[in-house]
Amino acid sequence: MTRSTFNHRLLPWVLLAPQLAVTAVFFLWPAGQAFWQSFLRQDPFGLKTTFVGLGNYAALLADPYYRSALWVTAEFSVATAALSLGTGLILALALERTLRMQRWYTTLLVWPYAVAPAISGVLWWFLFNPSIGILPWLLKGLGYHWDHGLKSGDAMVLVVIAASWKQVSYNFLFFVAGLSAIPASLYEAAAIDSAGPVRRFFTITLPLLAPTGFFLVVVNLVYTMFDTFAVIDATTKGGPGQSTTILVYKVYQDGFVGLNLGSSAAQSVILMGIVVLLTVIQFRVVERKVEY
């Protein structure tokens, strides 16, 4: 269908001007600078800048800290996505079976979405505080000495829980929407053919929920890779050692704290590459979902 349009040469540009101006000044220009900077290296006093080609990238890939950050990011993202997706799915399935109180349950489960990642970090940091927190006290009863300031495993558990807590509500809502789109007639037909709840889950629910699930996996990976900066900063600050330094945290640390501009810029470019890749995958998935 062709859409009828207004005939104006100037007006559309006037309408687009604010958005294009903001995009150019605060998105394209800085991104371009990061790209250019990633090929340069400054001496420690910032006096001389030399063009080093792909030198910053090569240095990064050879840097054991950067490789450790890659590994930490993978670990953290997969664990957070798995925990929040799993919990969201279980809660959505449970909600689907209840007839009463659905609205109440939903309200009581979705509000954490509104809590800032930084606040969620502080909340769990308080709960896991080694000296006064309630959870280390309980763990001590079980014979485990909790200390996320010293033990890297504990620190990872802390950031994964703090990051997942907030994301459960999001996944829950999307799974509820996905479940309610599955026609009830399928379940009725299966039930008449004497398929029990477990069988129905695996032959109907799971396959028909797969597009939603796949979409959520991508969205959750984007969330864990980029939006969890505040969670890390509010809880472990990337420590102990480098054990919870994810890529996006390292960009900030090397750029603002370490003032290693070339390396930080190269890291920005790599991250942009990852985002572009994930966005393309996401759009592919959405297109497939529409066809369904």
């Binding site: 687009l16 958005q19 294009l20 995009t23 150019a24 000044v25 605060f26 998105f27 394209l28 220009w29 800085p30 991104a31 600078q33 990061a34 900077q37 980029f226 939006d227 900066f229 996006v248 960009v251 900030y252 750029g255 603002f256 501009l261 930080s264 810029a265 920005s268 991250l271 942009m272 985002v275 572009v276 966005t279």
Partner: peptide, 24 residues
């Protein structure tokens, strides 16, 4: 114009934090 806008979707502020800070 459409694609220029589309690109902003891909660049969360955390990723390009240092150059954006410098511009501001």
């Amino acid at each position: 114009a459409f694609w220029t806008i589309f690109i902003t979707l891909m660049l969360p502020v955390e990723v390009r934090i240092l150059p954006t800070f410098k511009v501001v």
